[in-house]
Every structure is written in structure tokens, then in C-alpha cells.
């Protein structure tokens, strides 16, 4: 396997150790001196340093991991945990949004409907995927496929990974607000089990637009927030550089979200982040999805819908006649 590239700012110690390791290996070859012990010592140190750094990531550092250029994207997971994915294109009205894709697939040999926000890895694909920012047509296609899932009794898995819905003139003119809003309402009523998983970025309404589900799962280093830390910092701190402070204040990381009952399960990532061992991350996701799907299958439709309604009905605490309630 390709050695992980330590590209993030806080991974500097790992970059330096990797450099030392490369130098030692080179030296060993050039001088024909056995440096196996030294090499082993550095490898151990890399592993220990990685463990140390990744066990104490700040919320802002986690946001950076969630946006890591090598992080597995939605379709990487779909390809690994499903078979026979048939992409179904278009909203049947205007366009096919490549930032929000979907289709049928088999999950442990059972048919499911996949809805996935997809980012691109190289420049060409990034542009094709609009940097993971869906347009109104993406949400309308997602709704079309979810309704199809309901019609044919398929459970729906949605994969969330977006910095947000695309902010643009055309997007507004084709009513992105309405596209998202309709999805919120219809997903709340969909008569089939639904599970979403935040695989990277959970950017505000753009994420929620495919995120009103029976269960919400999140990878350990993913985040889910009403606004990006940079945006929040610019508005409340009048300084985008205050993003680390905003990230902490927003309580947007997986551990906080679980405590606040926004998500139902946090999926542990391999050491150093999901990109360090995508297969292991995918296996953990597959296990979690099957477990939650089994739970949901045990409920009849009425119970399923009532539980879903109540799940969202009680999110958020307020004060009533002096008492904190939710």
C-alpha cells in the first residue's frame, strides 16, 4: 500500500519522521550498511506519534481530516460495501447533478437505494463533481430515487459529504431552498427504513437535504454543522482565522454530536484517519449499517414513521416557564 501522505499542518512531526525514515532507507541502500534496527525504531516512533496526535485531535483538526484530499469518498464506500451499483441519473426535469448521485445496489445481497454526495479527487473530477456542492437538481434527483425506493420497498442509505449546497445565481433561480425543504418534509414521511452516514463533511442544509433519516451515523473524524467554522468565525469573530475557535464552540465533531443525540453511532476510524486504511473503515461502516438496518426492519411502518418524527421533534433544548426542555 502507498505510504500515507502527511499533508495536514498538525501532521508536521509525522512528515519529519517519514523524511528521516526515507533518508535512512536510502542510506542503507547506498552504503550497504544494515540499518534495520534504526529503521525499525523510526517506524515505531511514527506509529507512536501518529497514535498520540490522532488520539487528541481538536475539533478544527478533525475538520481538516474530514476534508483530507485522500479521505475515502462516498462512492469509494459504495464500491467496497455494495455490489451491482446501478447509477440512475437525472432529476427528469433539468439536469443530472454529478455532486449528488444515486442508484440501486445490493448490500449483503439485499437491494438498497443509494443516495450519495460525491467529491472529486483530481482537478477534472473536482470540477465535474462541483467540489461536492449539489445544485437543486441533485436534491430533486435524490427525492425521485427515494420515492422509487419507497415504491419498491428498498431501504435507503444516504452518504453525506458536502461543504454545503452550491451557492449560485442559477441555483437560487431554480429554487434550491425549495428543493432542500421538500426533501426534509418528504424524508420525514418516507415509508421505508432510511439510514444516513456522514462520511466527511456535513455542511449545513446541503447535508440535511439528504439527512432526515431514521438513523444517522458518522465517522469519527467527520463533522456536521449549521455553518462552516470559517463562515461562523467571519460572522461572529469578524475574522476567518478564528475558525479553530468557532469549530470548538459549534461542537461539530462526532463525539459531541453523539452526546447531543444528533447522531446514533460514531464509527471508529483506523488510526490516522479513514484514508490510512479505507478497507478497514469500509468494513466498520458495513457492520454498522447492517446492524441498524436490522433494528429498523423490526419496526412496522407506523412505528418507524412515529419514531422518526419523534427523533427530530425533540432535538434542541429551550426554556419554557423557566424550565429547560427539549
Amino acid at each position: 500500500m502507498e505510504a500515507p501522505a502527511y499533508v495536514l499542518e498538525f501532521e508536521k512531526p509525522l512528515r519529519e519522521l517519514t523524511k528521516q525514515l526515507d533518508e535512512l532507507r536510502q542510506q542503507s541502500i547506498e552504503t550497504n550498511v544494515d540499518l534495520a534496527r534504526e529503521i525499525h525504531a523510526i517506524e515505531k516512533k511514527i506509529s507512536a506519534t501518529q497514535s498520540e496526535i490522532y488520539s487528541a485531535l481538536t475539533p478544527w483538526q478533525k475538520v481538516q481530516v474530514a476534508r483530507h484530499p485522500k479521505r475515502p469518498y462516498a462512492l469509494d464506500y459504495v464500491e467496497t460495501i455494495c455490489t451491482g451499483f446501478q447509477e440512475l441519473h437525472g432529476d427528469r426535469q433539468f439536469n443530472d447533478d454529478r455532486a449528488l448521485v444515486g442508484g440501486t445496489a445490493f448490500f449483503n445481497d439485499e437491494p438498497v437505494m443509494i443516495i450519495a454526495q460525491q467529491k472529486g479527487r483530481d482537478t477534472k473530477e473536482k470540477i465535474l463533481r462541483n467540489f461536492g456542492m449539489p445544485q437543486p437538481e441533485g436534491y430533486r434527483k435524490a427525492l425521485r430515487l427515494m420515492k422509487m425506493a419507497e415504491k419498491f420497498s428498498l431501504p435507503v442509505f444516504t452518504f453525506i459529504d458536502t461543504p454545503g449546497a452550491f451557492p449560485g445565481i442559477e441555483s437560487e433561480a431554480r429554487h434550491v431552498s425549495e428543493a432542500i425543504a421538500v426533501n426534509l418534509r418528504e424524508m420525514a414521511m418516507l415509508k421505508t427504513p432510511t439510514i444516513s452516514v456522514i462520511v466527511g463533511e456535513g455542511g449545513s442544509g446541503g447535508a440535511l437535504g439528504i439527512g432526515v433519516t431514521d438513523r444517522v451515523l458518522i465517522f469519527e473524524n467527520s463533522y456536521y454543522s449549521v455553518i462552516s467554522p470559517e463562515g461562523c468565525a467571519a460572522i461572529l469573530w469578524k475574522d476567518a482565522a478564528a475558525a479553530p475557535k468557532a469549530a470548538a464552540a459549534l461542537k461539530l465533531s462526532a463525539d459531541h454530536l453523539e452526546k447531543m443525540s444528533i447522531v446514533d453511532e460514531v464509527i471508529t476510524e483506523p488510526l490516522g484517519g479513514a484514508h490510512n486504511d479505507p478497507a478497514k473503515a469500509a468494513a466498520a461502516l458495513k457492520y454498522a449499517l447492517q446492524k441498524h438496518l436490522n433494528d429498523l426492519r423490526a419496526l412496522d411502518t407506523e412505528k418507524l414513521l412515529n419514531t422518526r418524527y419523534e427523533r427530530y421533534r425533540h432535538l434542541g433544548s429551550y426554556v419554557e416557564a423557566g424550565t429547560v426542555r427539549s
Partner: peptide, 26 residues
């Protein structure tokens, strides 16, 4: 828009209100 100081809870009000409207429509 959303009340930033309530973070993700303010986002969830979008789901909460829309779900209620689903029942009204029904």
C-alpha cells in the same frame, strides 16, 4: 436564517418544522 449560537440544534429545527408540515399536508 439559522441561529449559529445553537449550532447543529438550529439546523435540526429545519427538519423538525418540515416534518410537522408533512403531517399537516397528509
Amino acid at each position: 436564517g439559522a441561529r449559529m449560537q445553537e449550532g447543529i440544534f438550529s439546523l435540526m429545527q429545519m427538519a423538525k418544522t418540515s416534518a410537522a408540515l408533512g403531517r399537516l399536508a397528509e
